[in-house]
Simulated assay, not measured.
Amino acid sequence: MSDKQKQATAYWKENVKYLFILLAIWFLVSYGAGILFKDALDSIKIGGFKLGFWFAQQGSIYVFVILIFVYVRLMNKLDKKYGYDE
């Protein structure tokens, strides 16, 4: 295997690792906080709404948008690390 192929393989391994971590966070927030842990989170209120309801309706969307920006930043760093930046 050439050096360029090893570099490309390492790049994609790191990329997939980032994807799995970010998707796990999104799953925990959207499914976990919105459905599984809703009853426990409902004891806390934000702006008059129960926290479990808030996560199910708005919080998971906010977290998803934040994760998009985190992914862009991580990919920019990864591109620079492996020399794929423009």
Rank of each mutant, 00 (worst) to 15 (best):
E14R: 09
F64G: 15
M1H: 11
D3S: 15
Y82P: 11
G47Y: 02
S60T: 14
I44A: 04
L22Y: 10
S60G: 04
V16D: 13
K6A: 04
W26G: 06
S30Q: 08
F27D: 11
K77Y: 06
A33S: 03
E14G: 09
G32E: 02
A33D: 06
I35S: 06
F53D: 08
D39K: 03
L51T: 00
I21R: 00
G59C: 09
Q5K: 14
F27C: 15
Q58A: 14
Y62T: 07
A33I: 10
M1V: 12
F20I: 09
F37S: 05
L36C: 07
K81W: 01
F49K: 05
L74H: 08
F20R: 04
L78H: 06
Y82L: 06
V63Q: 03
Q58C: 11
W12E: 08
Y62G: 07
A40W: 07
V65S: 08
Y62H: 06
A56Q: 13
F37R: 04
I66C: 11
S2N: 12
F49I: 08
L74C: 12
N15Y: 14
Y82A: 14
G47M: 01
I46P: 01
W26F: 00
Q5L: 15
W12L: 07
L51N: 01
F27I: 15
F27P: 11
S60M: 14
I61R: 10
A10R: 12
G83Q: 10
A40E: 09
Q7W: 05
A33G: 04
I21L: 00
Q57W: 04
F49L: 01
G47R: 00
L19S: 15
Y31I: 15
K50Y: 11
K17H: 15
L28P: 01
L74S: 08
Q7S: 14
L22R: 03
Y82K: 09
M1F: 10
K80C: 04
Y62A: 02
S43E: 08
Q57T: 04
V72T: 12
A33K: 03
Y71E: 09
V72W: 13
L41M: 00
A8D: 15
V16R: 07
K80S: 11
I25F: 07
S60A: 14
K81F: 02
K45C: 02
V29G: 00
Y82S: 14
Y62R: 00
T9F: 07
F55T: 10
I61S: 05
S30C: 07
D79I: 02
E14H: 02
I46Y: 00
I68D: 10
Q7A: 15
K80E: 15
F53R: 06
A8S: 06
L74T: 13
Y31C: 13
F20D: 06
K77N: 12
G47T: 00
K38I: 01
A24N: 05
G83V: 02
G48I: 03
V72K: 12
D3A: 14
Y11Q: 03
F55L: 10
K77P: 10
G52C: 03
Y82E: 13
W26M: 02
A8R: 11
Y31T: 12
M75K: 14
D79E: 15
A56H: 15
Y18Q: 12
S2E: 09
D79M: 13
I46K: 02
S2L: 08
A33M: 04
L36K: 11
W12H: 14
A24M: 01
A56E: 08
I44Q: 08
V63I: 10
I25G: 00
L67A: 13
Q7K: 06
N76M: 08
Y71T: 04
A8E: 11
K17C: 12
Y84S: 05
Y71C: 07
